[in-house]
Design a protein around this nucleic acid. Structure first.
Lengths: 97, 97
DNA sequence: ACATATGTAACCCTAAGGGTTACATTATAG
DNA sequence: CTATAATGTAACCCTTAGGGTTACATATGT
């Protein structure tokens, strides 16, 4: 596995800087558009909440992107986190084949 | 979004048919190798459990694959499920830009 | 100064991952 | 046919996490 040196950008950061700020979108407005609570969006934007598959679909509608864009960002983030949280998985031996 | 007609293959099905069966690996053996319980692996193999990021890392070690292989299969499955569980997200309007 | 936006705490509910033990069932080897 | 191994899964426990609402103190901007 190619290991990134630094933690991948959280989808919330991208959402904030690349999508909301350029359009001067407020958290309240976007939350309303997405049909979710301010709290949930605030957590994501501040990188304390994950982009779930359902949220990826909602974001894809609002910003005319693919849901994969969001889910992939989240996936990379999750994978990096999981690989650094514990080293147990590194001890697993490849199965001879 | 490109919508698949049928539900994407669950990672458990791939694991079972493409990796375990060719090597005559039993659930018990593989669970031991992966350092997880029989129950957890059984659920995944029978498509009643999800491949978490940690599990993707473990599987990647055991079968010398990338963790992305497993996480992507799971992601596609999750996305399909989320998009069919509710239609709320389809009502969201694109933000003018 | 006033209205808006924001982060977040408190609290509630639900779902899901993962572990262990135990047991009935199925398969397989002898 | 019988003994052993493998399996699925139920029951039970614990922990984490998503998401909602309400409320409030703190910005920010007009």
């Amino acid at each position: 596995m190619r290991t990134r040196k630094r933690i991948p950008t959280h989808p919330g950061g991208i959402l904030k800087r690349q999508y909301m700020e350029p359009l001067s979108l407020t958290v309240s407005e976007l939350a309303g558009t997405l049909g979710i609570s301010r709290k949930t969006l605030s957590k994501i934007v501040n990188e304390r909440g994950d982009v779930t598959p359902d949220m990826a679909l909602r974001l894809s509608r609002a910003f005319s992107t693919t849901p994969e864009l969001w889910i992939n960002l989240q996936r990379n983030y999750d994978l990096w986190e999981a690989s650094h949280k514990s080293n147990d998985w590194k001890l697993i031996e490849a199965i001879a084949c």
